[in-house]
C-alpha cells in the first residue's frame, strides 16, 4: 500500500480484477474494511469488470474452426424424417424442451435442404416425381423451421421484457424499430401463406424473417 491514506490505483484495480497475490490482497482487505471510500471504489471496479464480462463472446478458437465444421455439417446433411408416431404427451416443461430441440434439428435440416436444393438444378435429368417429393419434403421441413424460430423468438421476447429496464433507451428504440419492420413482413407473409399455403418461396421468406427476428432479439443481450 502507498504511504497515503488510500489504496493506489494499481492496488484498487488488481484487487478488483483478482490478479493480486493472495497474501498481498489479504493485507489490503483490512484497509478496505476500514475505508469506505476505497471499498466503494473497488466494488465499483468489480461491477464494471463483471458487467463487461457478460455476455461472453464467441470463443476465438471455435470461431476459427467454424468453416471446417460448417463444411462437415453440409457434407453430412441427410433429412430422413420418419412419419410421426403416436406417443404419450410429455409433461409441459419437458414437452417445450423437446419441441425446441426437435424444431431446431428440423430447422437445420430445412436449412440444409434449402441450401443444397439448388444443386438439383444442375445438368442431368431429374424426374417430376423426385421434384414433387422434394418439394413436399421441403415444405414440411420449412414449416418445422418456422415453428422452431417462432418458439425461440417468443422465449427471447419474454426475456426482453425482463431486461427492458436495463437496456439503454437509444438501443431499445432501435430494437423496437427493427422488430416493427420484421413483424410487418411476418404479417404480410403469413397472410400470403394463408392464400397460397403450398408456395415454398413464401415459407422460405418467412423463415428468413423469423431468423432475422431471432437474431435481433439475441443482440439485445449486447445492448445493455
Amino acid at each position: 500500500m502507498s504511504d497515503s491514506a488510500h489504496l493506489t490505483e494499481a492496488e484498487r484495480q488488481t484487487l478488483a480484477d483478482g490478479s493480486m497475490a493472495t497474501r498481498q490482497a489479504r493485507g489490503l482487505q483490512a484497509h478496505l474494511r476500514a475505508c469506505p471510500s476505497c471499498a466503494a471504489d473497488v466494488d465499483r471496479l468489480r461491477m464494471i469488470a463483471r458487467r463487461y464480462g457478460e455476455p461472453a463472446p464467441r470463443d476465438p478458437v471455435l470461431a476459427g474452426l467454424w468453416p471446417e465444421i460448417r463444411s462437415r455439417i453440409e457434407r453430412r446433411k441427410v433429412v430422413p424424417i420418419p412419419p410421426a408416431a403416436a406417443s404419450p404427451r410429455p409433461a409441459p416443461s419437458l414437452r417445450r424442451s423437446v419441441l425446441l430441440i426437435a424444431g431446431t434439428a428440423a430447422g437445420l435440416a430445412a436449412a440444409a435442404v434449402l441450401w443444397l436444393r439448388p444443386a438439383r438444378l444442375g445438368p442431368g435429368p431429374v424426374s417430376d416425381q423426385v421434384r414433387a417429393r422434394d418439394s413436399i419434403q421441403a415444405l414440411v421441413l420449412v414449416a418445422d423451421s418456422i415453428r422452431s424460430y417462432r418458439d425461440e423468438a417468443q422465449v427471447l421476447l419474454d426475456r426482453l421484457e425482463l431486461q427492458r429496464a436495463m437496456i439503454r433507451p437509444e438501443a431499445m428504440a432501435s430494437i423496437e424499430r427493427d422488430l416493427g419492420v420484421i413483424d410487418r413482413s411476418i404479417e404480410e407473409l403469413e397472410l400470403a401463406i394463408q392464400r397460397d399455403p403450398r408456395n415454398p418461396t413464401l415459407r422460405q421468406l418467412l423463415v428468413s424473417s423469423y431468423r432475422q427476428k431471432v437474431e435481433v432479439l439475441k443482440r439485445v443481450g449486447n445492448a445493455g
Binding site: A63, G64, A171, I175, R219, N222
Partner: peptide, 10 residues
Amino acid sequence: ARSIEAETMT
C-alpha cells in the same frame, strides 16, 4: 483476419 463477426444496430 482469421474470422470476423461484426454487428451494429444503427
